[in-house]
Amino acid sequence: MSDKHTVTVTVTVNGQVYTGDCEPRMTLADFLRHECGLTGTHLGCEHGVCGACTVLLDDVAARSCLTFAVQADGARITTVEGLAEGEQLNTLQKSFQEHHGLQCGFCTSGMLMCATELLRENPNPTETEVREGISGVLCRCTGYDSIVKSVMAAAGDQRDAVSEAGSAR
């Protein structure tokens, strides 16, 4: 629409630079999904409650449905597509597979991004802390218990990896 005011947005997502033109009203979620082709970030409510659209915006977990793309201009973003290490699932992803922490997979992107931040801030969470930490992401499939187990186990695996790396040094 030629009469529409557009803005140019440049973001670095998972290390890749993307530039696109959009209306200021385009949400970051839609920009990631439609302009960057990163459809792993999902929209479940578009009003900031379900948490499926959670991404790391300059390393901080944010709901991409409540952020306009124009606000992210120049930002560094991590989405679910950026978690795997090469062709291997990362520790958290592996743990979700092992403990059946996902069923349909729709909330999973948000869960993983939320849990990534949680474990970074608190590498030794209690079960209560994990439940509170992920309470902003709604899952309709699992009943959460398996997700809590996945995150707890990933925390343990990350600790093991750190101590192994430490002893190897």
């Binding site: 949400t27 009003h47 900031g48 449905c65 409540l66 952020t67």
Partner: peptide, 25 residues
């Protein structure tokens, strides 16, 4: 527009429709 956690949901519901947003982030 500050954190957007209250305003943007209202806009997505089209219950708020400011013609200009002043981003103070």
């Amino acid at each position: 527009l500050a954190g957007g956690q209250s305003l943007v949901p209202l806009m997505n519901f089209r219950m708020a429709r400011p013609s200009v947003l002043i981003d103070i982030n």
